[in-house]
Computed example of a mutant assay.
Amino acid sequence: MIKIGKIELGDFPLLLAPMEDVSDPPFRAVCKENGADLMYTEFVSSEGLIRDAAKSVQKLDIFEYERPVGIQLFGSDVETMGACSEIASRVNPDLIDINYGCPVKQVACRGAGAALLQDIPKMVRMTEAVVKSTHLPVTVKTRLGWDESTKNVQEVAERLQDIGIQALSVHGRTRVQMYKGEADWTLIAKIKDNPRITIPIFGNGDVDSPEKALEYKNRFGVDGIMIGRATIGNPWIFNEIKHFVKTGQRLAPPTLAERVAVCRRHLEFSIRWKGPIAGVFEMRRHYTNYFKGLENFKPFRMRLVEGMSFEELDQILNEVVQEFSEVLC
Rank of each mutant, 00 (worst) to 15 (best):
K212F: 01
H135P: 00
C329Q: 15
A157P: 01
S270V: 05
D11G: 11
T127V: 09
D37C: 14
S309H: 14
K6W: 10
N239R: 06
V207I: 15
F324K: 14
P254T: 05
T186H: 12
C263G: 06
E66G: 07
F291W: 03
K292S: 09
P93G: 07
A29L: 13
G224K: 07
K6I: 10
H243C: 05
L16N: 05
W273M: 06
A189Y: 01
E66N: 15
G75T: 14
V207D: 10
Y290I: 04
N34A: 07
V153E: 00
K292L: 05
V305G: 12
P103S: 09
R159G: 05
D119H: 12
A88R: 03
L328M: 15
A230V: 07
A17R: 08
V104M: 03
P13C: 05
E66Q: 14
G111A: 10
E295S: 14
G164W: 00
I71E: 01
G70K: 09
M308S: 15
E66P: 03
V107C: 00
G228H: 09
E282N: 14
G111S: 14
P137S: 09
S133P: 00
P235W: 03
F281W: 07
Y40V: 12
E128R: 09
S85D: 01
E128S: 07
I98T: 07
L317P: 00
A54C: 07
E79A: 06
F324N: 15
T80P: 00
E240Q: 12
A53T: 02
I4M: 12
S270W: 03
F269V: 00
D208N: 15
N152H: 15
P26G: 04
I191H: 02
T134H: 11
D97T: 08
S133H: 07
F12G: 09
K292N: 06
G224C: 15
G205H: 06
I241P: 04
D77G: 02
I232M: 10
E33R: 11
E128A: 08
S56G: 03
Q161H: 08
G145M: 13
P210C: 06
T139M: 02
A29D: 08
E215Q: 09
F27M: 08
V156C: 10
